[in-house]
């Protein structure tokens, strides 16, 4: 049995029920091929770096599973044909790396949330006025003369 990291992108326009169906189908594929799903969670709903099948955003799901190596080609081919799955990737990992990645993922999420909250707070404070005027609102410096 080897550890695998598996991420797939769901059609974001599906309603909750349909999305759930697709996810269940994918999970069933893994299990049917002899795999054992360790975790299967939504990862992020985000904008795609380029359009895929006409979509500009997607719902990313991240799954970790263990399976015998012979099962992988079967899983890949079946997932590829699954409606609702726009893209996927299956990679080898091991327990240790998997745990580190999950921890790192959680950490990054927290950092991002903290940064976003800070920015929102700053924006709020600026909107309410007070404090030194923003640099852009004062007349600019005269351009420096060329030295020769």
């Amino acid at each position: 049995m080897n550890g695998y990291e598996f991420m797939f992108i769901l059609d974001p326009t599906l309603d909750d029920a349909a999305s759930l169906e697709v996810v269940d189908r994918v999970e069933a594929i893994v299990t049917a091929q002899g795999g054992h799903v360790v975790s299967l969670k939504p990862w992020e709903r985000r904008r795609l770096a380029y359009p895929i099948e006409g979509h500009n955003e997607g719902l990313y799901m991240l799954c970790y599973f263990d399976a015998p190596p012979a099962a992988i080609t079967g899983i890949r081919s079946r997932v590829r044909l699954t409606e609702g799955v726009l893209r996927f990737i299956v990679l080898r990992t091991d327990q240790e790396t998997r745990e580190r990645d999950q921890a790192a993922d959680i950490r990054r999420r927290q950092e991002r949330a903290a940064r976003a909250a800070e920015q929102a707070a700053r924006k709020q404070a600026r909107a309410e006025g007070g404090g030194p005027p923003h640099r852009s609102s004062s007349p600019g410096r005269p351009a420096a003369k060329e030295s020769r």
Binding site: M7, I52, G58, R87, I89
Partner: peptide
């Protein structure tokens, strides 16, 4: 390259 195939980064 992996991130690109998963549309997390652009080509």
């Amino acid at each position: 390259q992996r991130a690109r195939t998963m549309a997390l980064l652009p080509y």
